[in-house]
C-alpha cells in the first residue's frame, strides 16, 4: 500500500525543510519503519518501552544520520498492538509535542486497535490509497472512522484535516482501464489530492537500501513526494507524472 514508505518520505521531507520532526512506528509486531529509515541496527528502546515507563523518550528516539531535524521512534517487534494504550500514546505524543514541530504517526494496516491509536490524537491525516477499487473503498471507510472516532470528534472540536495521497499510480495501466484514474479516485472520495506517487522501481530500491525515497531526487517518486510535502505546507504545485511518459530514443537505449 505504501503507508510506511509515505511516512518515511513525508517525515524526511518536513525535516529537510528545517522542521523538527519525529516519526513514530505504530505497527507494533510488524515493525518496518526502522528498516525503511535505515536505522534498524541502532534500535535500543522502542515505543512500547516508553509507554511502559521502561525508558524515557530521549533514550528511545533515534536521530537520523542524514538529517539533524529528524528522529525515529521505532515500534516493538516482540509485543502485540494491545501494548499501545490510549493514555500511554497520549502521554508520549504530548511529550514529543513540546519539542517537535511535526509528529508523523505511521499507522498499521486495517481499522483495528493499532490504526485507531495512530489516528486518535491526530490533527491532520494523510490517507494513502492505491488506484484500485478495493483500496479506495477501504480508504473511504478509514476516512469515515477518522471523522467519527478521533479525539477531535469525541470532543466536538474541528474535524481532522484529511489529505489523500495516491501511490503506485501507473498512467499506462490507467489508459488500458486496469486502474482507476486520478479523477475517479478524487470523485469517489470527494477529497483533493496531496500527491500522486507514480509506480516506480525507485520506491523498492529505496526501501531495500534503507533510504527514504524522497532523498532520491532523480526519481519521479522522490520528486512526487517532494511536491506532496510542499503542498502539505501550503505551496500550490501542479501534479506531475499523471501522463504516460514518452520514451525518447536515448532513454530507450539506456533502458528507461
Amino acid at each position: 500500500m505504501g503507508k510506511t514508505t509515505t511516512s518515511a518520505a513525508l517525515a524526511m521531507g518536513l525535516a529537510q525543510r528545517g522542521h523538527r520532526t519525529a516519526v513514530i512506528d505504530f505497527d507494533v509486531g510488524l515493525r518496518n519503519l526502522d528498516l525503511i529509515m535505515g536505522c534498524e541496527r541502532r534500535v535500543v528502546y522502542d515505543f512500547v518501552n516508553v509507554i511502559n515507563g521502561e525508558a524515557n523518550i530521549n533514550q528511545a528516539l533515534i536521530r537520523d544520520k542524514r538529517c539533524d531535524a529528524l528522529y525515529v521512534l521505532p515500534a516493538s517487534q516482540t509485543r502485540d498492538k494491545e501494548a499501545l494504550t490510549k493514555d500511554g500514546v497520549g502521554r508520549v505524543l504530548e511529550e514529543l509535542g513540546k519539542t517537535f514541530d511535526y509528529i508523523v504517526c505511521d499507522s498499521p494496516a486495517g481499522i483495528e486497535h493499532g490504526a485507531h491509536m495512530a489516528m486518535y490524537y491526530a490533527d491532520d491525516a494523510v490517507v494513502v490509497t492505491n488506484p484500485e477499487v478495493s483500496s479506495v473503498r477501504d480508504s473511504d471507510r478509514m476516512l469515515g472512522i477518522l471523522s467519527s472516532k478521533s479525539r477531535r470528534a469525541e470532543r466536538n472540536e474541528a474535524p481532522i484535516r484529511e489529505y489523500l495521497l495516491l501511490t503506485r499510480y501507473a498512467p499506462e495501466r490507467v489508459a488500458k482501464g486496469e486502474m482507476l484514474s486520478v479523477n475517479d479516485v478524487r470523485e469517489i472520495l470527494s477529497l483533493d489530492l496531496l500527491g500522486v506517487i507514480p509506480e516506480s522501481k525507485a520506491v523498492l530500491n529505496a526501501s531495500n537500501s534503507g533510504v527514504p525515497v524522497i532523498l532520491d531526487t532523480e526519481s519521479d517518486a522522490g520528486q512526487a513526494y517532494h511536491d506532496a510535502v510542499g503542498r502539505y505546507l501550503g505551496e500550490d504545485l501542479p501534479h506531475r507524472f499523471l501522463e504516460i511518459k514518452k520514451k525518447g530514443f536515448f532513454s530507450r537505449l539506456m533502458g528507461g
Binding site: R137, D140, R141, L143, G144, I145, S147, S148, I188, L189, S190
Partner: peptide, 24 residues
Amino acid sequence: PVRSGQRVYAPGGDLSVVAPVSHG
C-alpha cells in the same frame, strides 16, 4: 461526506445529505 461503513438515521423525520454518500 457519508463514508463507507457509516450509518446516519433521522428518527421521526427527513434526512438531507448535501455531500456524496459512499458505497457501503
